[in-house]
Amino acid sequence: SPPKPKTIVLPPNWKTARDPEGKIYYYHVITRQTQWDPPTWESPGDDAS
């Protein structure tokens, strides 16, 4: 059997959903933003550039 996916701790107000093909995506319940990649926690002042 395939390994279980890691449990991802989502930031507040993010949910997972499935598209009609069964792929998992993520959406923000307030902004209605959707994305394929797991959302990352906002870390103020932490600039990755």
Rank of each mutant, 00 (worst) to 15 (best):
S1K: 10
S1Q: 02
S1G: 01
P2V: 10
P2S: 15
P2H: 15
P2T: 15
P2K: 10
P2L: 15
P3T: 14
P3C: 04
P3Y: 15
P3A: 08
K4N: 09
K4T: 06
K4P: 05
K4I: 09
P5H: 08
P5I: 13
P5M: 15
K6L: 05
K6Y: 07
K6V: 13
K6A: 11
T7H: 14
T7V: 09
T7F: 15
T7E: 11
I8F: 11
I8D: 08
I8Q: 11
I8K: 12
I8N: 14
I8A: 10
I8T: 12
I8C: 14
V9K: 12
V9D: 15
V9S: 10
L10F: 09
L10Q: 03
L10Y: 07
L10C: 08
P11M: 05
P11H: 05
P11K: 06
P11G: 07
P12H: 03
P12D: 12
P12W: 06
N13F: 14
N13S: 05
N13Y: 14
N13G: 08
N13R: 10
N13E: 03
W14D: 02
W14L: 00
W14K: 00
W14S: 00
W14P: 00
W14H: 03
K15V: 15
T16H: 13
T16R: 11
T16K: 11
T16Y: 08
A17S: 08
A17G: 11
A17T: 07
A17Y: 09
R18F: 04
R18L: 05
R18W: 06
R18P: 03
D19K: 02
D19R: 03
D19A: 03
D19Q: 04
P20C: 05
P20I: 08
P20V: 06
P20E: 10
E21G: 12
E21T: 07
E21H: 02
E21W: 05
G22Y: 01
G22I: 01
K23G: 07
K23V: 06
K23Y: 06
K23L: 04
K23W: 01
I24H: 03
I24Y: 05
I24S: 03
Y25R: 02
Y25E: 00
Y25S: 02
Y25I: 05
Y26I: 01
Y26Q: 01
Y26H: 02
Y26A: 01
Y26G: 00
Y27C: 03
Y27Q: 09
Y27D: 04
Y27F: 04
Y27K: 07
Y27W: 08
Y27S: 04
Y27N: 03
H28S: 01
H28E: 02
H28K: 00
H28G: 00
H28C: 01
H28R: 00
H28M: 00
V29A: 12
V29G: 06
I30Q: 06
I30P: 10
I30W: 04
I30V: 08
I30K: 09
I30L: 10
I30E: 06
I30H: 10
I30N: 11
T31A: 02
T31Y: 01
T31Q: 02
T31I: 00
R32V: 00
R32I: 00
R32E: 08
Q33P: 00
Q33N: 09
T34L: 05
T34S: 05
T34V: 10
T34I: 09
T34F: 11
T34Y: 03
Q35R: 10
Q35W: 02
Q35M: 10
Q35F: 02
Q35I: 04
Q35S: 11
Q35Y: 04
Q35P: 03
W36P: 14
W36F: 15
W36E: 11
W36T: 11
W36R: 14
W36C: 10
D37Y: 06
D37W: 07
D37K: 11
D37Q: 07
D37N: 06
D37A: 11
D37P: 04
P38T: 05
P38I: 09
P38W: 08
P38C: 07
P39G: 00
P39H: 02
P39Q: 02
P39K: 00
T40D: 05
T40Q: 15
T40I: 02
W41H: 14
E42P: 13
E42Y: 03
E42C: 06
E42K: 10
E42S: 12
S43L: 11
S43V: 11
S43P: 05
S43Q: 13
S43I: 10
P44I: 04
P44D: 10
P44Y: 12
P44G: 09
P44Q: 10
P44L: 09
G45W: 12
G45H: 02
G45N: 13
G45A: 13
D46Q: 05
D46G: 09
D46E: 09
D46W: 05
D46V: 11
D46I: 08
D46R: 06
D47H: 11
D47Q: 15
D47P: 08
D47M: 07
D47N: 07
D47F: 04
D47L: 10
D47C: 08
A48W: 10
A48T: 14
A48G: 12
A48S: 11
A48H: 10
S49R: 08
S49L: 08
S49M: 09
S49V: 02
S49F: 05
